[in-house]
């Protein structure tokens, strides 16, 4: 079954629990300069008297035609046939950063220690075993979810509230 990560923007308060869960799941060490694969933030725009706030949590969108995958010269990135996630095996990564330049969401990141690129794998092994991705599991407001393609179509049809996934950001 193919899955889509969906952020229900109306429920997100950018608390970053998702980012912390990501760091816990993936042993990210910020003291070594590493950053989590998911980031939450607040964007504030508009006039000072009436500002508009947007609360977001952004990670790899696991795009259908993933530009990072196309850009990688050594074939590290591929689509997982079971989940549809954009997964990687960075054994042959040469750290050329081509995937980073291809990504519209600033997702692939370079690990100085290993000299290789890395990114969100959608917690693919968890999902394959019926568990939720770490960021989805932790979200205190249920803003993040992982839905199947068909559930996603249904969601888009029936729920007018602002949802963010690669489908509408592309």
């Amino acid at each position: 079954m193919k899955y889509v990560f969906v952020l229900d923007e109306s429920k997100c308060v950018a608390c970053s629990a998702c980012a912390v869960a990501c760091m816990d799941q993936n042993d990210i060490d910020p003291l070594a300069g590493d950053i989590p694969f998911r980031a939450a933030f607040v964007d504030e725009q508009g006039p000072v008297e009436d500002p508009k706030f947007t609360f977001l949590s952004i990670a790899c969108m696991h795009c259908e035609n993933a530009p990072c995958m196309i850009a990688c010269p050594t074939g590290c990135l591929k689509k997982d046939p079971e989940t549809g996630f954009t997964v990687f095996d960075n054994t042959n990564c040469i750290g050329c950063h081509s995937c980073a330049m291809a990504c519209p969401f600033a997702q692939p990141c370079f690990n100085d220690n290993s000299g290789k690129m890395t990114k969100c794998d959608g917690c693919v092994e968890r999902v394959k075993r019926g568990m939720q991705p770490a960021c989805v599991k932790v979200c205190p407001f249920g803003a993040l979810s992982l839905v199947s393609e068909s559930e996603y179509q249904e969601l888009m049809r029936t729920d007018a509230r602002k949802k963010i996934s690669y489908k509408i950001l592309d």
Partner: peptide
Amino acid sequence: DGVLCTKGAA
């Protein structure tokens, strides 16, 4: 019920 806050997650 399964979730945690930012701090608890750490």
